[in-house]
Design a protein around this nucleic acid. Structure first.
Lengths: 232, 232
DNA sequence: CGACCGGTTGAATGCATTCAAAAGGCGTGG
DNA sequence: CCACGCCTTTTGAATGCATTCAACCGGTCG
């Protein structure tokens, strides 16, 4: 790892409050890897060998079973994945692939477990990280089971709008195909849902979206803090 | 709390390795409550005030939104719920109700957070508990999104059979209505699914189930270690 | 130019929900 | 002990949301 990269890694939230010498030693054992788009970063069923931390890029986390596939989440810089498997020393329950060229900090599972036992601050960070991940997936389960696909799309648009400054205009951060997977629907359904939302002043041109009547959109979406609000 | 109850609480897995004085102090602040069936133990949207630990009884964890409701899990003795909300000091994302008369150990959220910071062993227990809960819900998400209701039922039957000694005969641990909710389907669908499984030598009489051809059932179910195996 | 990929649109199918009604089980009160 | 009523479960039928298959458009790349 290069000196300036190391410097950046040291400041990761995950290491907050941790003894410096521990951080150093963990980082020495870790790899900062670059991956091209479409590469598989982890495969369901394999033993957890590294905790993955996204420094740069987008990663799709998904699971397969019996010729079907479902996207669980799409992660970006600052987020980690497969933490639970690492902590418990079990196999991955999900696979992950890079959606864009990515830089991933890979911390050996063994080291994670070791310092989890050894350093309160690190244990605390991991616990909080896990708790957040847990709540995120609960929200996703609710999103999937309590909403129609039209509602899921509407809420995603509202959330994305808020996230990007609430200007009413933003670009889709990935292909519609991927968005469809993220929202748990076939691409065809996403297409039809966008069409249906035109009635609520949602206009889409390629990847640029314009929400011209947020209130109308909220009425279809029925947003809920307990599903959509990342800070809740 | 009575002396003998206290004694029992002290041996909880959650407290393994924890300094005795800490355990004592946590338990002194806690309540061992009895609840009749159907009582609501936690409500979505309320601030997390207690970590709940089931000593006795069955608890249904569910979430509501916009006049719909979905069951997230059904828990029994030894399992805790709403740990993530307690740790992060956020509101509950799910509600919980007692399915049967239950005894619940309620540990004040404040105390949980305090000892989480203070005691490595406790932090470790919580981390592991959270990691397991996380993986369970990932499995549930996969179960829901990658399977038909017939498959979900078939797999549940297989798992339950294994759990109860693989004799091919067992009783449903709760009403079919509740089972339907647990499996994410309407009661009507459960009924029809049972009827459909008769073709695979599954016979049901009231709450007693008899699986007469496990292999046939496995063929419909397509069980997967990464969804169904509690130890994976 | 032709092939391919992402996206859209149309049509058919299917799984599951919903509404409705009837049958079976269980407990309560007369 | 029986009758009644409530709740669970089953069965039937209609509806609907979403998947799947298929065809088509437009842009990009070899």
């Amino acid at each position: 790892m290069r000196q300036e990269d190391l410097q950046q890694m040291r400041t990761l939230r995950l290491f907050d409050g941790m003894a410096e010498s521990y951080v150093e030693s963990m980082l020495r054992a870790s790899f900062l890897q670059r991956f091209p788009a479409r590469v598989e970063l982890a495969r369901e069923g394999e033993p957890a060998d590294f905790l993955h931390l996204i420094i740069d890029g987008q990663v799709e986390v998904y699971a397969s079973h019996h010729r079907r596939e479902t996207t669980v989440s799409i992660l970006g810089p600052g987020q980690s994945f497969i933490l639970a498997a690492v902590l418990l020393d079990r196999v991955y329950l999900k696979s992950a692939r890079a959606l864009s060229p990515s830089r991933i900090l890979m911390i050996p599972a063994e080291a994670v477990r070791q310092y989890f036992e050894r350093d309160v601050h690190f244990a605390r960070s991991l616990g909080i990280e896990l708790a957040i991940a847990y709540r995120d997936i609960v929200k996703e389960l609710k999103n999937q089971k309590l909403r129609s696909s039209l509602e899921r799309l509407a809420n995603w648009l509202l959330a994305r709008n808020t996230e990007t400054g609430a200007s009413g205009r933003f670009a889709l951060p990935f292909d519609k195909k991927v968005l469809a997977a993220r929202l748990g629907m076939a691409p065809e359904v996403l297409s039809r849902s966008f069409a249906a939302l035109a009635a609520y002043a949602v206009s889409v041109d390629g990847s640029s979206v314009h929400l011209q009547d947020i209130d109308a959109l909220r009425k279809v979406a029925h947003p809920s803090a307990f599903i959509d609000d990342p800070a809740t």
